[in-house]
């Protein structure tokens, strides 16, 4: 009899945590390592736009965003430790390093805090990871070129910031796809640091030494417009430059499309991925079974949806998507 009561109570407790948990008293914090470019600014703005109403509607009690000043892992680890002390129920983190924060993340998990990492993910197993398929991005670029230019030709590669894992990942994707498409040859490679002015300078420096018949430029995002400017300044024909969803890149593409039927392809992830991470954290707090590894959907701009995507993109910003609870549930369902 006694046993039955205990079992019954246990069953009740289980069902209440899995299905009926209420997150209205839960507090979620965003730990962000860097805010010094437009992508990160859009990411923070999206966080505010989505979490503000969520807090007002009482879905969660708080969703505070914190950014470290120096983009240092040690600083972010201290920030996470503060969040543990402040008693947050979940921490959503865009990490400065995939490994250096693991100690602090483990402490948070041990304190019973849900940790969801996104974009800059962490390797600590207790945390959830919303990762970007950067290799897939690189592969898609080459596959697009292979489709547009079946006879192949010479390519220029613009890489990101040397020594950052994202740069290696995208490059690995491009290399893998190049191996399958031997009609293409990369004749030059420069580092554009994901910045238009750096890319412009690097491309302008190597361009005079490159053959005239460059047919395509594979990029990593935030460097396409700078590359295009360098080609125009050198008086060269414009190759197919893959873009990275920045407004100036898409505007340039639109102009060229209207003038001369220019065709290219643009791919990146939406800065609003922070809101996806927010909803995933909310779902975990709600007791939903969420797999530890999730994948961020890529945002692609093609010849057909260019005008539509450009309209959605704020002047000077990046094509953005803000995710809803339903989107998060769909991503979770895909991964389960």
């Amino acid at each position: 009899m006694k046993k039955a009561i205990v079992l019954g109570a246990l069953a009740l407790a289980l069902t209440s945590t899995t299905a009926y948990a209420d997150t209205s008293d839960k507090r979620i914090a965003l730990s962000n390592n860097y805010a010094g470019n437009s992508w990160r600014q859009a990411m923070l703005t999206s966080w505010e736009t989505v979490t503000g109403p969520a807090v007002e509607q009482g879905i969660v009690a708080a969703a505070d965003a914190f950014t470290t000043a120096e983009n240092q892992a040690t600083e972010q680890a201290a920030q996470i430790q503060n969040m543990i002390l402040q008693g947050y129920d979940a921490i959503v983190v865009n990490a400065a390093s995939p490994t250096a924060l693991n100690g602090a993340i483990k402490e948070a998990c041990d304190a019973g805090i849900t940790v969801v990492s996104f974009d800059g993910i962490v390797t600590e197993p207790c945390a959830w990871r919303i990762a970007v398929d950067f290799q897939g991005m690189g592969r898609k670029e080459v596959e697009f070129l292979a489709e547009k230019l079946p006879e192949g030709g010479r390519l220029l590669e613009i890489r990101g910031l040397a020594g950052v894992s994202v740069d290696d990942e995208i490059h690995a994707g491009i290399e893998a796809a190049m191996a399958e498409n031997s009609q293409f040859e990369i004749v030059g490679s420069v580092n554009g640091d994901w910045a238009q002015d750096v890319a412009q300078r690097a491309v302008a420096g190597i361009l005079p030494s490159l053959p005239e018949d460059i047919v395509g430029v594979v990029t990593q995002g935030g460097d396409g417009y700078g590359a295009a400017q360098a080609f125009l300044a050198a008086g060269r024909p414009l190759p197919i430059i893959i873009m990275g969803n920045r407004e100036d890149e898409l505007t340039f593409w639109k102009q060229q499309k209207d003038e001369s039927g220019y065709e290219t392809y643009s791919v990146s992830i939406a800065p609003g991925v922070s809101t996806l991470a927010f909803w995933v954290a909310q779902q975990i707090l709600d007791g939903v079974e969420v797999p530890k590894d999730l994948v961020v959907p890529l945002v692609e701009v093609t010849q057909d949806n260019l005008e539509e995507m450009l309209e959605q993109t704020a002047a000077g910003s990046v094509t953005n998507v803000e995710y809803s609870l339903e989107d998060a549930q769909a991503v979770i369902a895909d991964a389960s």
């Binding site: 010094g36 238009q196 002015d197 400017q229």
Partner: peptide
């Protein structure tokens, strides 16, 4: 001048 040259100001334009 740099912002005029490269098509706009960016938050990380001075880093280099």
């Amino acid at each position: 001048l740099l912002a005029s040259f490269s098509g706009g100001a960016a938050l990380n334009m001075g880093t280099e």
